[in-house]
Amino acid sequence: MPDSVTLIDLAFPVAWPPWRTGTFLLLFLSASGFLLALPGRGFGFPRWQRVSRWALLAALACALAAPLSLAASLHRPDRVMLLFTRAGGAAWIGPCYLAALTLFAWTTMRRDLAAATGADLRARLHRAASLGGGGAPRLRTLAMLLTAGFGFILLPRTHPTGNAAPSPDLATLAGGAGLAVALMVAVAALIPVLGPRRAAPTGKD
């Protein structure tokens, strides 16, 4: 085998659009938000309700923004669908995660949507989107498990360059898990501040 030398400079600049970083950052933020939403919206702990609601909305917003960031990272964003149509079944895990998360958010917020009052367009849309407003606990449990499952498969596949080295994947996985844990600890510490407000003492008790 011929001897080898190490190349130091590159002939052409490495193309790594910074939006790619945003894609996996948004996905990990979404997963972290989903984890934060579980105590209140998944398991029903009353002190977590307010925090979990905001976390779930944040998870949904980040998951919806991630594909846009992915498209923005391409030099040909008009061909973003090729990433799904040509890359095989594994590429659909991302859309499946988004669909499951949307279903989970809908099942946990149906009652809130159905409780909208008034005759304006926004209230009517909320009531229509609730589809009756039931709790649908089985559907919620199914959506929660699907979201967690798709997220478990999706996150290790999320990496900045698609290169062959496995370490970035494990590093991002560890970083995402660490971020979620750090957020949960921080929010748990702030629950007395962010949680449901108690009625001020009136002095009659």
Binding site: L7, D9, L10, A11, F12, P13, V14, A15, W16, P17, R20, S73, L74, H75, R76, R79, V80, L82, L83, R86, T161, G162, N163, A164
Partner: peptide, 20 residues
């Protein structure tokens, strides 16, 4: 026709022989 211009191959090439 199948390239999205994501640049992954440019980053993956250790010889810097690919470009957008």
């Amino acid at each position: 026709a199948a390239c999205t211009g994501c640049g992954d191959c440019v980053a993956a090439c250790p010889f810097g022989a690919r470009r957008i």
